Simulated scan of single mutants.
Amino acid sequence: MYERVLFPTDVGEPPERALEAALDIAERYDAELHVLTVVGTTRVSADVETGPALEQAERTGSATVDTLVERLRERGHERTVGAVVHGRPHDGILSYAKNHDIDLIVMGTHGRTGLDRYLVGSVTEKVVRLSDVPVLTVRHRLEA
Rank of each mutant, 00 (worst) to 15 (best):
D116N: 13
L19P: 04
D116I: 15
Y29P: 03
F7P: 01
V69M: 08
V106Q: 00
S95K: 09
V128H: 02
G51R: 15
G82Y: 00
V120G: 11
G76P: 15
H110P: 06
R139T: 10
M1W: 14
D47R: 06
H77P: 08
D91N: 11
V138T: 01
T42G: 12
V81W: 07
E13R: 13
T41F: 03
Y96W: 06
A83Y: 03
T9F: 06
L136E: 10
R28C: 14
R73W: 06
I102V: 15
T41N: 03
T113G: 12
R17D: 15
V5H: 02
G40Q: 13
G111H: 09
V133I: 08
H86I: 09
R17Y: 09
R59C: 09
S95L: 11
L23A: 01
A31C: 03
G51E: 15
P134G: 03
P134F: 04
E27H: 07
T9L: 08
A97M: 03
L33G: 02
V5M: 07
R129C: 08
E143Q: 14
M107A: 04
A57Q: 06
Y2A: 12
M107C: 02
Q56D: 11
V44L: 13
G76Q: 08
G76D: 09
I105T: 06
T42C: 10
F7R: 03
D66F: 05
Y29A: 10
P52G: 07
T80G: 08
S95P: 06
A22F: 01
I105K: 01
V65L: 08
T67M: 13
V85S: 05
V128E: 02
V5K: 00
D24T: 15
R79W: 12
D24F: 14
E58L: 11
V106N: 02
Y118F: 14
R59K: 15
V38K: 01
T37I: 02
G87K: 01
D47L: 07
V11F: 09
M107W: 00
L130K: 11
T109K: 08
V5L: 05
L142T: 13
V85H: 04
Q56N: 13
R73Q: 14
E20K: 09
G121C: 10
T41S: 06
A63I: 05
D30Q: 13
R43H: 13
E74S: 10
G108D: 02
L136Y: 03
L94K: 00
T109M: 08
L6A: 04
V44M: 12
H34P: 04
L68W: 05
M107E: 00
L119F: 11
D47F: 12
R141Q: 14
G108V: 01
A18E: 01
L142P: 13
S122R: 04
